[in-house]
């Protein structure tokens, strides 16, 4: 409760400062609209913003789900196979050296203007944090547990599924928490490069028409969506794995 009050207090102070800057500096609305105008626009355009927000939300959720599954599977493959480690890890790092931005036009070319190019962007951007957080955790199983499993004559497969994977789930959870914040970035980049729907598309459109108030309205909705997603993933991880 105290925390909620504190967050609300900070938000109100921020909005007041924002409005004060706009009013005192007499900034034109096409440079920086004040929060009163932005929230007014958000209210009058709520149907439009909601329609685009739903599209972005679906892209983000599908990207997060598929990217999470892919990261989970990759980390396990890397953890069980030294061959996969030696072959794939350099490639893995190389893919991170390529800016995701630069890949967006190619993905749009390959996958089209619809949902899947955005899902692919979101997956690309979350794949590395999920895989590396989970892989690191899989490689750090407390040695005492592994000794115990060996003395109990466990097979490597059962040791993996019954001990190493469950012990590494807090690592997977940290990867997913990061992913919840990164996935919307991927979706928005995808929408900027080529889309006909979504909050990123709406922001570009509003910017081009000097409707900066609408752009800010879309931005605020995006930020709120991201925060909600992070909170939901965080709550789910705590519930499932207690961390």
């Amino acid at each position: 409760m105290k925390r909620a009050v504190r967050i609300a207090g900070v938000a109100i102070l921020g909005l007041l400062a924002w409005q004060a800057v706009v009013t005192l500096a007499e900034l034109p609305r096409f440079i920086l609209p004040g929060p009163v105008l932005v929230f007014g626009t958000l209210w009058t355009s709520k149907a439009l913003v909601a329609e685009h927000a739903v599209v972005t939300a679906i892209e983000v959720l599908v990207g997060l789900g598929l990217g999470g599954i892919l990261g989970f599977a990759s980390a396990i493959l890397l953890a069980v196979s030294p061959l996969a480690r030696s072959l794939l890890r350099p490639m893995f790092v190389f893919t991170q050296a390529v800016p995701v931005f630069a890949l967006a036009p190619i993905l749009t070319l390959w996958l089209g203007y619809g949902l899947w190019s955005k899902v692919a962007m979101a997956m690309l951007i979350i794949y590395f944090p999920v895989t590396s957080a989970f892989f690191d955790a899989l490689m750090r199983t407390p040695p005492g547990w592994l000794d115990l499993a060996r003395v109990m004559t466990a097979t490597p497969g059962r040791t993996l599924w019954r001990i190493r994977v469950p012990a590494a789930m807090p690592g997977f959870a940290s990867g997913l928490r990061l992913a919840a914040v990164y996935a919307p970035i991927g979706a928005i980049i995808g929408e900027w490069v080529g889309a006909s729907k979504g909050l990123g598309y709406l922001m570009l459109l509003a910017n081009g028409r000097a409707k900066i108030d609408l752009m800010f309205a879309a931005l605020i909705v995006l930020a709120v969506l991201t925060l909600l997603l992070h909170a939901a993933v965080d709550a789910a991880c705590r519930r499932l794995w207690g961390s």
């Binding site: 005492g144 547990w145 000794d147 115990l148 499993a149 109990m152 466990a154 097979t155 059962r158 207690g242």
Partner: peptide, 27 residues
């Protein structure tokens, strides 16, 4: 059988599941 200084209990399993761990690890 081995019993170490640290109890090596799995925090995600209840006590019954912990004491029957060996059977499950052997299938």
């Amino acid at each position: 059988a081995l019993m170490a200084q640290s109890d090596l209990l799995m925090p995600w399993l209840d006590v019954t599941a912990n004491v029957t761990l060996g059977a499950r690890l052997r299938g």
